[in-house]
Amino acid sequence: MTTRNRLLILVAAVAVLACVAGAAVWHASDRAARKNTEQAGGPPVVQGAVSLAPAGPRLMVFRNMAWGPHRDELATVPAASPGATRTASGVRCLRFHAAAGTGICLQSVHGTVQDTYRAVVLDSHLNETRHYPLNGIPTRARVAPSGHLAAWTVFVGGDSYAGTDFSTRTSILDLRTGRLDASLEDFTILKDGHRYRAADVNFWGVTFADDGHFYATLATGGKTYLIRGDIAARTVTTLRPNVECPSLSPDGTRLVFKKRVPDLSPDAPWRLYALDLATMRETPLAETRSVDDQAVWTDDRTVAYSLPGDFGADLYTVPADGTGTPRTLTPAALAPAYIG
Rank of each mutant, 00 (worst) to 15 (best):
G157P: 09
I137W: 12
T170G: 07
G147S: 09
H148G: 08
P138S: 03
A162C: 09
V154M: 08
I137G: 03
I172D: 00
L173N: 00
E185R: 15
G158V: 05
T139Q: 13
T188A: 14
E185D: 14
S146D: 07
R140T: 11
D165C: 03
S167G: 15
F187G: 05
W152S: 10
V156P: 09
A144P: 10
G163D: 00
T164M: 10
F166M: 12
A182D: 13
A182T: 12
S146G: 04
T153E: 14
E185P: 07
P138N: 05
S146Y: 03
G158A: 06
L175V: 03
L173E: 00
S183F: 09
T170C: 10
T164A: 14
S146I: 03
S167C: 10
L149G: 00
P138M: 04
A144F: 02
S183H: 06
S167M: 14
R179C: 00
R140S: 08
S160F: 05
V156M: 12
V156Q: 14
A162L: 06
R176K: 13
L184H: 06
A162H: 06
I137R: 07
A150K: 01
D165G: 08
L175G: 01
R179S: 05
R140P: 08
P138T: 02
S183W: 07
V156C: 08
E185N: 15
L180Q: 01
L149P: 00
S171V: 08
D186L: 11
D165K: 10
A162D: 09
W152N: 10
A141K: 08
S167R: 15
Y161N: 01
D159V: 07
D159N: 13
R142K: 11
T139R: 13
Y161T: 01
V154H: 04
T170L: 11
R140F: 13
D159E: 13
A144W: 00
G157T: 11
V143D: 04
R169I: 04
A141D: 01
F166R: 15
V154I: 10
L175H: 02
G158L: 04
G158S: 07
S183G: 12
L173G: 01
